[in-house]
Write a protein that binds this DNA or RNA. Sequence first.
DNA 1: ATAAAATATTACTTCAAAGTAGCATTTAAT
DNA 2: ATTAAATGCTACTTTGAAGTAATATTTTAT
Lengths: 137, 137
Amino acid sequence: MKLSNTSEYALRILCFMAKDENRLYSAKYLIDELKISDKYLRRLMTDLTKAGFITSIQGRDGGYKFLKGSGEIYLADVINAVEGMDKYTGCSLGFCECSDKNPCVMHSTWVPVRTEFLKAFTTKTIKDLDIMTVTKY
Amino acid sequence: MKLSNTSEYALRILCFMAKDENRLYSAKYLIDELKISDKYLRRLMTDLTKAGFITSIQGRDGGYKFLKGSGEIYLADVINAVEGMDKYTGCSLGFCECSDKNPCVMHSTWVPVRTEFLKAFTTKTIKDLDIMTVTKY
DNA sequence: ATAAAATATTACTTCAAAGTAGCATTTAAT
DNA sequence: ATTAAATGCTACTTTGAAGTAATATTTTAT
């Protein structure tokens, strides 16, 4: 019920960048502002670039900027880009074959929790978060 | 959004035992039925014993049986006994100081998910799960 | 052309959760 | 008493996520 560090970072990066959506951000600046380690952030930026959310500009005066609008990037898309949603949407007891038809002992209890999770992550975009009113990124 | 293996095992063990609530279960039997490794299950049994859910009977013909009724053991109690609920109830982005008053960027999105999680785990007991109608433990 | 400042990639290290091994302890049946 | 069959404890190993190091590549300013 907590996201992995990897997904945390990915969301924090995009939310932070969305504050000033058309700006170009260098990795150095993001590292300083978000307190994420150098190499780890860079690796995530590559994933986010490959997913098409942002684009990277190489060379001197390069950096990253949005390719898609922050209102088009769903939270689930971000998780999928960096680690996959499977871990978050699977059976709570880890059974591969768990469904309404063939449920585990926790299934009916877990469904409402998962439903609420999926609702949040598949209907909300980066833009829908409290980007402007908040100080924690 | 998936429980740790440790919590999975703890819940599965108690649910399985609750099918025949007054029976004495040996570790060997539970290991065979639940396909949990020997030493790991035994360690968990010790935690569950210390938490007062079950009691262990040492010596030949020993084993484990319920001390509390399965209807008195809340799911959150089980998690607390083996690893603690903090991991599951904290801020989704990992901020220590995240609250309604001082929220992170995900806070308002995450609250309904966490609320649903807490509702399930603090209001349901082992007995409330689908113990009798299900084949997966 | 060269240097500077940025991103990209690959391989390595660290850490905590998960899992394993071995031995100590307890108790009932014989 | 002895043995067998169970639990209890402590230390070790493995594994995957997280984090780090070193180097290559790209592009602009001079």
